[in-house]
Design a protein around this nucleic acid. Sequence first.
DNA 1: ATTAAATATACGAATTACGTATAAAAATAT
DNA 2: ATATTTTTATACGTAATTCGTATATTTAAT
Lengths: 198, 198
Amino acid sequence: MENISHNKKYKALMETGRRLFWKHGFRRVSVEEVCEEAKVSKMTFYKYFPNKFELAKAVFMEVVGKGVTDFKSIMAADLPVGEKMHRLILTKVEGTNEVSREFLADFYLGAEPELKEFVEKTTTEVWNELIKDYRKAQEEGMLRNDFKPELLLKIATKLVELLKDESLLAMYDTPQDLLLEFTNLLVYGVAPHSSHEK
Amino acid sequence: MENISHNKKYKALMETGRRLFWKHGFRRVSVEEVCEEAKVSKMTFYKYFPNKFELAKAVFMEVVGKGVTDFKSIMAADLPVGEKMHRLILTKVEGTNEVSREFLADFYLGAEPELKEFVEKTTTEVWNELIKDYRKAQEEGMLRNDFKPELLLKIATKLVELLKDESLLAMYDTPQDLLLEFTNLLVYGVAPHSSHEK
DNA sequence: ATTAAATATACGAATTACGTATAAAAATAT
DNA sequence: ATATTTTTATACGTAATTCGTATATTTAAT
């Protein structure tokens, strides 16, 4: 069991690091803060990572890598748009997708340029793939035409954040019910509609 | 012209302070940072505010006060739900509504308890008023019944954040067009519908 | 020209953050 | 049970931030 990346504490640091860096960026988050929230002592932190920057780098690479894979496999599948949307949101919930603007902002100022290049290429690549997919769905009449697919993606991303809202979750039996509500909203809106009425 | 609150620099500090505090909370934002972003020198900052805490307090009171007034006047108006939703989002865009959880988290740790009480009372008050309103709309058949109004409010709040997304804004002639798109989505969804087809 | 407002710069003091060293405690393996 | 590894608690020195102020200069308004 010498694979460091499967270590419990290591994973806790990565997870907490991602959460905090994603939200507040690099400089606003301290090593001590990450340790506290991850319930890992500072010593073990420095056992796994030589410094704060390397944690951020590791987090970043993992997120982007995993995100791209997930995205692509969903998009490659032969599924109806609604189902794809559903799964897309699901993977976002798992928290591996999207690169926080806040994070990029000050993390990159001190990073190697190759990192930046790699990421920007892969993200826009996936992004375009998604948009193409929605465009096709529009042509097939599954989505209304006066709607920019780019907008839909951004909206989906935003809605994902709500899936962690406790007061909302308390209103539903399971998180899946809330998620279902989201997809329903995106597809049908709040207006009454015959095919979906209770 | 001795009214300090109409001063240009004062307003810049309040505006920047709100933006940063809202996003990152109290402790993560420094006075120098606020000054830089607001393009105000540190000296003038300390001319208007004795310290960082007082800025946060001023920002907070202004936001809550203005937010409540706006909310109430919209809700009191005799308008269709769609129009109310539209205006609600508009006022949110102006940035005076909602109290950031991040901000409350560490700002309140050092604040007077009376502030906390005041705010919690007024916010839940307004919140309930809104929900009541949407419930009424549901009973009148303007919204589908299998939809919790609380969710709609949270969603609206999230969507507002997208109204500042530059890449999205670039796709529309005016910000109003993007806003219109949001309300359309909320009401009709992305599915094709006869009454709204292009 | 006079006055008021805003800035640039630098400063000391306090706090925070970084990364390391040491020794104790907890968990795991033998 | 004993040995070994892993994690922790604590403290430390150093560096960087941040706070709030002091002083001198610039800009803008009257």
